[in-house]
Amino acid sequence: MNNTFNINRFNRLIKQQYQISGKNSALALLSILIGYTLILLTFTFNKYNIEAIEWLPFFIMLNGAIALPFAAYAFPAFRSKEKTFDYLLIPCSTTEKFIFNIMVRIVLPWIILPVIFYISSHIATELSLWFNPDYYIESFRLSAIFEEVNTEQFSIILTAMILMALIAQSLLFAGATVFKKQPLIKTLVIIGATIAFVIFYFYIIIEWVEVYDSGRMPWVATFENKDSTGYYLVALEIIGLTTTWAYAFFRVKEKEIA
């Protein structure tokens, strides 16, 4: 038997987890639908002229506000010793458990939440037009983004943005494998401290060491092939994403060995 990944064993894991949390997940999705609808109703009732592209900020903010914290609480069994022990005894490999959490905590939110937002936005639109027939409200559609943006590098920019969102989720996801209590807050503190250190480091280089004033330009600043910048950024993001997932995987593996 394959001890790394077995599709039948993986399917049993999905069924088992669905039996445990299926009802709670359904209630959570219903709550999100209602919450989205109420927020978007406020938007449509307070503005009589809405174009399709104007839904985009709500799409990003609402979905991000759900997807990011959700990733930070991956492997919920790790929040207590008893549940951790029970979870490690599930007859599945570490790879299968890890892939399941990647799917549920990182991938699925960006499939389910946009659908919920689409439904909520259309419900809000119809209710608003029913109460205010003289309003002009275009329904939400993602294709409006492509209509508004006309650039040859849009595909690479979009890819970079998607990877950036996945990296943000993955950092919080990795934090869930490290911290037992309050993984979201603790991971955000670590990330914030790291960003502050990097900013301070470059501040010292630019202001104190006077790198630019002395003519000693960093290679990044003198990079001439600007057309390839987007591709280098995507490559770095892929490396960062892979590294983050690898770190999270070995943290889970470490718990199993211990």
Rank of each mutant, 00 (worst) to 15 (best):
K97Q: 08
L89E: 10
S121E: 02
L129K: 10
L113D: 05
T125I: 03
I99Y: 01
A77S: 12
P76S: 01
N46I: 01
P114V: 05
L62Q: 05
I162R: 06
I53D: 04
I123F: 10
T125G: 02
F43P: 07
V107H: 02
S155K: 09
E51R: 10
S155C: 08
Y118Q: 07
I137T: 05
N101E: 11
L166H: 02
F43Y: 12
E51P: 06
F117N: 01
L89V: 11
Y118R: 08
T44E: 00
K83E: 15
I66D: 03
S80V: 09
K47I: 08
K81H: 12
L163F: 14
P57K: 03
L158G: 07
Y48R: 11
F45T: 13
H122I: 09
R79F: 10
L56Q: 13
L127P: 06
I137P: 03
S93P: 01
Y87Q: 09
F146L: 15
I99V: 15
L129D: 07
L108Q: 03
S143V: 11
T159S: 15
F45Y: 13
I106D: 04
E96P: 00
A65Y: 12
K47G: 03
Y135A: 08
F85Y: 14
E138S: 05
T151Y: 13
E51M: 08
I50P: 06
R105L: 02
G64W: 08
Q169Y: 01
F131C: 05
I156H: 00
Y118V: 08
A77D: 13
I137F: 05
F98P: 01
P57L: 02
I167D: 04
L127T: 09
S128G: 13
Y87L: 05
L62N: 06
A52G: 07
S128P: 04
I123M: 01
I167T: 00
F131T: 10
Q169V: 03
I106H: 01
F45W: 12
A74S: 11
S143Q: 13
Y118G: 09
K47H: 10
P109R: 03
T94Y: 00
A67R: 05
T44N: 04
E152D: 12
P109D: 02
F70I: 02
Y87C: 05
T95V: 08
F117L: 04
F98R: 00
T125L: 12
F78R: 02
D86R: 12
T95N: 04
F98E: 00
E51S: 11
C92V: 15
L56A: 10
I90A: 07
E152W: 10
T125A: 08
N150D: 14
Q169E: 11
F98Y: 06
K83Q: 15
